[in-house]
Design a protein around this nucleic acid. Structure first.
Lengths: 259, 259
DNA sequence: TAAAAAAGAGCGAGCGTTCGCTATTTATCC
DNA sequence: GGATAAATAGCGAACGCTCGCTCTTTTTTA
């Protein structure tokens, strides 16, 4: 809340903190958005109680599903963990399957698109690639349980959702590949296999929210990982024939405030 | 079978084909090893039938678990897929949980250790790192369903197995980190964050067997991926202050014969 | 033909889901 | 503005079903 006048400067200032201030939704307001997105599926109409219970239910779902998987979680487990009765739960979900589908749909149709509007429109390909990588990492930090859930559980969803998950993977890879190819055309980058390189970058993005236990264990902050990924990408795609002074070309902040 | 006299030259010749010829077990003989490893858990004693049915059962398990997960697969599904009755299945497994445990134990105690004996003992750090990366990729290609199963399903196993899976992750990361640090000491490599770099390499190794659908789709062969990973690592860890002629320092074969 | 292996009906437990009911909040009336 | 009525939210026992697993019977093998 303090200093808010000077903090809406993403993407010029490339750190987690400034990204968060520019995103029109935060971890606390997300279930308000969620409620509005699924009004017709949710039987409860009184907003204040609904949002509180939705947060309880889905946070508990992420917690339970993270150990043992969504299939292994029974609705009785969820009932016990939330303190909401079986019948109460069914005022918020149509079915257990639909619960998983809600997570998938909300992430892919509401949360993820939000972030992509914060892309750098102008700037060099290298800058735009760095910005995009940071968006992925920062979004993964903010909504880690959502991303992990969709990655891990999409296989147990309906055919349509499974295909969609693979499609998003391919689309994200293609976007990264496109940026790399623009960088090559501009003479800024050098890469012998853009397809595999793009795939590798996506794998490293996903590792951030899949192996959070590991990165927590060795004290890697969000900005640490984003900075690492960007500078690694820079070195990997460096055009050795080019001799410019500033290799990175983006304004990274050390970012001590994170998580 | 043909030309076997000149094909036992791993790790000098770094390609999938020569690796396969040096590994004391192949995709066809693996269930013979498996049977011997679990003799006391398996009620069936006649070896010929046992091996055939074990192959049927576990291959079907991998197939079924890959879509929907192990929990979602019922033993009735498995019975139908294998053509073996419920009672018949229980002549080969002690329980459904034990089935998953057998996969985990066999991979971690029998298959994986086999490969590490094929490490390059001598040679430069860069060569040894390249060899190790290739071993991971080649093993992933040969026993992809096993690796994927353990990665995806370890979370639903007993506490002990889950902790073990994380431990292997940390051990593998540490070994890669160690090799990188040796390379730095030798003046061969340059790296600002060995921990995160090692983590990243492991993530790319795992991506190979986790996203096989993707790599199959864009016609990336085992050798393609291994070569990409090794040359990427080379560029990533290159010591820009050093000016040696041969950057790679290993003998990669193009490797058209794969999968 | 005796031993080994496969078969498949059957068991109790636990699953997702429903439904009749109570409790609580909001709206209406004099 | 307090009493009454209506609407909404929460509850938990009960249902039908499928699960992992067992056990007796039948088939196969040497």
């Amino acid at each position: 809340m303090s200093n808010s006048s000077t903090q809406t400067n993403w993407p010029q200032e490339q750190c987690f903190s400034s990204f968060k201030h520019c995103l029109p939704v935060c971890r606390d307001s997300v279930y308000c958005e969620f409620f509005n997105a699924f009004r017709e599926d949710i039987k409860v109409k009184r907003e204040s109680a609904a949002i509180k219970n939705l947060k309880t239910i889905f946070d508990a779902t992420f917690e339970l599903a993270s150990k043992g998987g969504f299939d292994a979680m029974s609705l009785r487990d969820l009932s016990q963990a939330t303190g909401i009765s079986m019948g109460g739960l069914y005022n918020y979900i149509r079915s257990k399957d639909k619960l998983a589908q809600m997570v998938n749909d909300f992430l892919s149709q509401r949360l993820a698109p939000l972030a992509y509007s914060l892309n750098l429109e102008n700037g060099s390909p290298r800058q735009r690639l760095a910005t995009r990588l940071r968006i992925y990492i920062y979004m993964g930090s903010l909504f880690r349980p959502w991303y992990r859930f969709v990655y891990m559980e999409s296989k147990s969803m309906a055919r349509q959702q499974r295909d969609q998950a693979k499609l998003f993977d391919l689309v994200d890879t293609a976007k990264l590949k496109e940026l790399i190819e623009e960088g090559i055309s501009a003479g800024e980058m050098q890469c012998s296999n853009t397809e595999l390189t793009a795939s590798a970058l996506l794998a490293l993005i996903q590792d951030w929210y899949l192996k959070s236990w590991k990165y927590k264990q060795n004290d890697t902050s969000t900005d640490d990982y984003a900075n690492f990924l960007v500078s690694m990408t820079d070195k990997l795609l460096a055009n050795n024939d080019q001799h410019t002074g500033n290799q990175s070309g983006y304004n990274a902040h050390s970012g001590k405030n994170n998580q």
